[in-house]
Design a protein around this nucleic acid. Structure first.
Lengths: 349, 349
DNA sequence: CTGTTAGCGCCTTCAT
DNA sequence: ATGAAGGCGCTAACAG
């Protein structure tokens, strides 16, 4: 698809900066300067370059630009999975906000595996990302070391602890777990169950659990009256976990779930087993997903501002680019949304 | 933060091919050959290069590789929104499958706006993507023209019509709508409502609606016994739309919703208004989201293989790269999942 | 203010 | 089978 231009040059496919310079009658350096808004260019020259670029439909080659300038305007994000709305929405907020600043987002998933996260992060560095957005505080030490050496700034989300990162955007998972505990204590509950997410390699799940338990024990609840199980975030697992909890004697008067996903599974089990919610057992979730308002009874849960977190992560990342070497912590509020799945403690039987 | 390695080299930041060659005691050419699986390398040399690369944690610089080889291994995807699970999951499948082939995914969103989609597509081309994954068949003509000129192959998803694209991976929305109509006819329904998604610029919503209506009219249903409203995919809108449908006289014995999101809103309205589902009115959704099994009664819906679609899109895109200029159509099956929200037609009142 | 020059990191001829 | 060298397209020094 070669074609002959007005001035006789033969072009094949893509137009390069050289072509623009040729047509504008200047050097590639000047053309480059104009196109990059460099000020020291005469207005006449400038005009010609711009016109030439427009006529030729010039599109800069980002690979060359990136290679040369060592800057790609690329941001990497590694999340556990796109199947969970909270992560997907976070990425949505991130992407949208970054797009306004001309940055693009390369996405990848780790499936809650810190080792996979490490690999993904390396690949992203190879892609030339200048910053990387990770979920949580806990990561493979090598991941962070590698990123640091590569000069890639690190933004942690879903946590407001900075750890070894450059920025943290999120909330205090421990505090959130504690707030649920306090709420349930106030309602007079005495025996507690928890269906936590898998805590291995997941600081969010760990802290929610720890904050919950610590607050209960500080309030005088015996450790034997707190029974904790772990389950991957899937409805089926919530159901099975609830079943095991409901088979203990005496059974908990309330169950706190590390995610709404688990909570709806738990409620589903109760329905099938003839256990009344909240009369027999109160259930609390986490995340405030859309489903929270769709189950019967509606789910008491902790609202997590997923989209806002993505937007705030974008802001943090942008500021990090401006002042290199600074640290940013943005704490976002969570709040307990009380709905029908919780009530006063069930009568002892 | 330079550090001294065992063999005395000073490293700053990222490991380059030169570093690997140095440590392996060979030339960069040889190292390159080994890392690219070029056959003509002695096994001893090969071993050393691989070891060196592993020890140093070498990651190729994609900008350089892209510049040299004129190929970026970058794929762009534009979806309406990451807030809806079907799109998020599709992207998840796409990303995961492409990662295996060393391709990265740059993501962006259009918010169901074809004009925004056009802009995003242009930006992606500027980023050097070699293929682009779009949702649906209908796009701004300029979008497709631009992509074609830039040599970017186009994969459409959620449709199995090729249109002006190079590949289509999805299902027949019209047929899916028709299958719902047939199912409801068999159950003896006589007056039909539909809460469709917004059809403007959305061929999926349009075709689901058209297939539904066409099948009904072909079966002898009068057009006045089919009432259709449109609503953006949000629970609240489903609720409001259902309210308006339930206020017509005589009211429909069944309502087909263009998405489970709308359907759960519709069911929610029924609960609040004392309308029994499915006794008073049957409800059918679309997508088979997780919520479909969580509402009461559970939702009859059309299962859409979102993740598989992403994976199939990746496959199509890969094949497209191999045989330039070919066309690929992959039709994925949908199936009607019958649950408790549908029953025989309600008794006439 | 503009042009010339020297690479960015990698792959791939071309020699050996 | 291996190494040396050139250049992908662009930008940032440095000259002029």
């Amino acid at each position: 698809m070669a074609r002959i231009t007005g001035d006789g040059a033969v072009e094949t496919g893509v137009v390069k900066l050289k072509d623009v310079a040729l047509r504008a009658g200047c050097s590639v350096a000047t053309a480059s300067r104009v196109l990059n808004g460099h000020p020291t260019v005469g207005p006449a020259e400038k005009e010609r370059v711009l016109a030439a670029a427009a006529q030729l439909g010039y599109v800069p080659n980002n690979s060359a630009r990136a290679l040369r300038s060592q800057s790609t305007s690329l941001v990497g994000v590694v999340i556990p999975t796109l199947d969970h709305a909270i992560y997907a929405k976070m990425v949505g907020g991130l992407q949208e906000r970054l797009a306004r600043s001309g940055k693009a987002v390369i996405i990848s998933t780790s499936d809650y595996d810190l080792e996979r996260e490490r690999m993904q992060a390396k690949l992203l560095v190879g892609r030339g990302v200048e910053s990387i957005v990770l979920v949580g505080l806990e990561h493979h030490p090598e991941t962070l070391e590698y990123l640091r050496r590569a000069g890639v700034s690190q933004v942690f989300t879903y946590t407001c602890e900075l750890g070894d990162g450059d920025a943290a955007v999120g909330f205090d998972n421990r505090l959130a777990g504690a707030s649920v505990a306090r709420f349930l204590l106030e309602r007079g509950h005495t025996r507690f169950g928890m269906i936590a997410g898998v805590t291995r390699g997941n600081d969010r799940a760990t802290q929610r659990r720890d904050g919950f338990i610590a607050t209960l024990t500080e309030a005088g609840i015996q450790r034997q009256d707190i029974i904790v199980v772990e389950a991957p975030y899937r409805i089926e697992n919530g159901r099975a976990a609830m079943q095991s909890l409901m088979q203990t004697h005496p059974r908990p008067t309330t169950v706190f779930c590390g995610s709404d996903i688990l909570a709806v599974g738990a409620i589903k089990y109760c329905h099938s087993a003839g256990i009344a919610v909240p009369e027999d057992v109160s259930v609390v979730g986490f995340d405030n997903l859309e489903v929270a308002e769709l189950v019967t009874p509606e789910l008491t849960t902790v609202d997590v501002p997923a989209r806002e977190m993505g937007e705030a992560a974008a802001d943090a990342l942008l500021r990090l680019g401006e002042k290199k070497g600074s640290f940013i912590v943005t704490e976002l509020p969570t709040r307990l949304i009380v709905r029908g799945s919780t009530g006063p403690a069930a009568a002892r039987r």
